[in-house]
């Protein structure tokens, strides 16, 4: 299997084979990121496609420093951000109260039964503005100041959105956890 440097060189030279190879290698991981940032599959697919187009266009600017996968991920996240900025006014904000309370609070934070797919589903259920802030803060590691600049909100709003996102996630985790326990216990 050719190493990533050779694949990049091939892509830069316009090799269709290398372009497809690069896509096939990384599409699954990056599509998971797209799903994480989008509420529906169509939007995720758009982000993936636009993200890859940008990746190919900007390959010439990639310096062989740091993780190539990380570099690609940043481009995809930026694409998701652009998409969010372009239509965030259209998004509906669900009220936290509309989320049903769990039957009973779990005694401990035991979410061991949850798989990555469950977590993805939970995070995608978040209202877009909460999902965006949670993703940028908790997953990507940006500060509230950076997030405020990225999506044109104040730092206070960023903090508040994160807090609401966590509350919703906590509730949903408990629901999932409770459901899993019921299923296991029979």
């Amino acid at each position: 299997m050719p190493d990533i440097i050779n694949v990049i060189k091939g892509c830069l030279a316009g090799s269709r084979k290398d372009q497809e190879l690069l896509y096939r290698r990384h599409a699954a991981k990056l599509y998971a990121v797209c799903l994480q940032y989008s509420g529906n599959d169509d939007e995720a697919r758009d982000i993936l496609q636009e993200g890859f187009i940008k990746i190919f266009e900007n390959l010439i600017h990639y310096k062989n420093e740091g993780s190539f996968e990380g570099w690609m991920r940043r481009i995809v996240v930026n694409t998701a951000l652009e998409k969010y900025r372009s239509k965030h006014n259209l998004y509906r904000v669900d009220d936290i109260d509309s989320i049903p309370e769990p039957d009973a609070s779990p005694e401990t934070d035991d979410y061991s039964g949850l798989e990555a797919g469950d977590l993805l589903m939970i995070i995608r259920d978040l209202p877009p503005k909460y999902r965006m802030v949670f993703n940028l803060y908790a997953i990507e590691g940006y500060s509230h100041k950076e997030i405020s600049q990225m999506i044109n909100i104040s730092e206070g709003t960023s903090k508040s959105n994160l807090s609401r996102a966590r509350t919703i996630l906590q509730k949903k985790l408990s629901l999932y956890s409770g459901m899993n326990k019921k299923i296991i216990s029979g």
Binding site: A27, A28, Y31, L35
Partner: peptide, 8 residues
């Protein structure tokens, strides 16, 4: 979610 992969 770190290593999650979903086929596009």
């Amino acid at each position: 979610l770190r290593d999650l992969e979903v086929l596009p």
